[in-house]
Design a protein around this nucleic acid. Sequence first.
DNA 1: TTGACATATTCCTATATGGGTATATAATAG
DNA 2: CTATTATATACCCATATAGGAATATGTCAA
Lengths: 118, 118
Amino acid sequence: MARAATTTDAFNAVAEPRRRQILDVLANGERSVNDLVTMLDLAQPQVSKHLRVLREVGLVDVRDDGRQRMYRLHGSALKPIYDWVRTYERTWNERFEALDDLLAELSEKEEEHGGSGE
Amino acid sequence: MARAATTTDAFNAVAEPRRRQILDVLANGERSVNDLVTMLDLAQPQVSKHLRVLREVGLVDVRDDGRQRMYRLHGSALKPIYDWVRTYERTWNERFEALDDLLAELSEKEEEHGGSGE
DNA sequence: TTGACATATTCCTATATGGGTATATAATAG
DNA sequence: CTATTATATACCCATATAGGAATATGTCAA
């Protein structure tokens, strides 16, 4: 099996930095494809393709406006990522890391039944 | 160009659900490879390979313990993801989404200069 | 030493990618 | 109608997978 498709979920879609850039731009409001092409200095087809991926995972919505297509952020599709990563917030708190270290050492010693130290 | 390597950064490493599962287990404390094999019902080589990816992006640390290798979470490597996604938190707040919708509709009407409705 | 256990690596293969280029579709202007 | 603008799609290609199977490496036991 190959890697999961980029359109599988937000995690995969957002792993590509260009797509994060696109979302960052759209976070400031609706934009046309050409706006994105100009602002991100990408070729138009690549932008369209990235937008397709983002659309397929529900990260953006589109609206027709004459010959333009206005894309807009649909932020709630990022919530699963936020919810997952948020549970780890405490782990990069230094105090907790130190505590984890201590607990790990204690349980090691316990298993070794007070044997020869580390 | 193909997709960026899974070892490029935490975003790519974590796009794979099995690797998130591994991190979820390690969040509860150090584990040996075999522990993970058993708990996640995966083949041993795949676990080792996933752990290699996680190690290369700094998401886990290893410690030798006899013939076992104990893996442990290094949560701070998730911080870039958290920091990025956190800036979008407000976008899935219903009140803000409704406000965005309203503003978008207003600017539509403005462009159409009071033209035929929706 | 040999054997058992724990983990890592190598090889294979199907598959999906992202960029580039060319072209198709769609909508407006004249 | 034709031309122009805006966007999407099709095609090609090099590349990196993830899983499976086999094997290599490493550590301890007897």
